[in-house]
Amino acid sequence: MTATIESLSQMEVRRGTLAPAPPREIAVRVRDLIKVYRDGTEANRGISLEVRRGEVVAIVGPNGAGKTTFLRQLTTELRPTAGSVSVFGVDAVAEPERAKRAMGITPQEAGVFERLTVREHFELFARLKHLSKREAREAAREVIEELGLSAETNKNVGALSGGQRRRILIGLALLGRPPLLVLDEPTTGLDPSSRRAVWSVIRRAVAVGATVILSTHYMEEAERLSDRIGVIAAGRLIAFGTLDELLVRLDRSYRLSYRDPIDPSSDLKIRYCASFAQAQQHIARELLSEYSIARASLEDVYFNLTGEPFDKDEAEAIG
């Protein structure tokens, strides 16, 4: 990838619509974001956060916690009840179209145009992102290559697998190298190899300067991809920080997994310990023979904060 990513201001400077300004450190600033739906559901209850340029932020949380509502407000798809969202200094609530010029968005549930070929899909949507014909062709070629869809270039999108269609949606977000990518569960439903391919694509985008905000159900994805992780539960951002910062919040940061020696066929049991020594003491006291000790992970933080285990089936699918 040779292209570099421009900020919205840089793009506007290039187009002559904005005076040059010093680079901003904050890519996205969200203040006291509240969303109350018409039926009275409080989906977001005063979320505030700042995302720095070039950062990858993962938003995790149980189903129905308000992650998608949060991202939909960020991408201007949903009008906040109160609060503000600023994208590279542009008020996304007041100027949604201008804010969207800086964003590449993959919605959680979006449909593709099945009768378009892969190339047409990318080229036409690149044109709708206001790239010239030549730029659109080039952008489509790059994205197709990057997503490993070269063999499918001239196939109708309707003939592709679910995973390949999901990759197309991610590719549409990448077109034009927007400085901010907002990806709502980008790898949900993908097989492990496709998921890793998407991770590579995201990493490459970040390497050339993109800021990424993504939501995910996969703890491994959040751990591996993100610089900082936000945990949303019941509409509130209950934790936000690096993995290390979140782990510090755990009083007991060692996880002891073991089988009950009296009933070895029972499910694996988990106990959190303040130290490695404490875990060893427990093993000796209970005469455990089948056990493992590990440093706590994001999964443990998540469980500790939300009181809910993450989806085991999905986690196992990562392999």
């Binding site: 991408t75 798809e77 179209e97 201008r98 969207k100 010029r101 964003m103 590449g104 968005i105 993959t106 919605p107 549930e109 979006a110 449909g111 593709v112 145009f113 949507f125 709708l128 992102k129 206001h130 949606l169 549409l172 977000a173």
Partner: peptide, 17 residues
């Protein structure tokens, strides 16, 4: 069809009036 198959969402992600 565009609205209920999620295709409209694709247009909505763009800086398109």
């Amino acid at each position: 069809e565009n609205r209920f198959t999620g295709r409209l969402k694709l247009f909505a992600t763009l800086p398109l009036a």
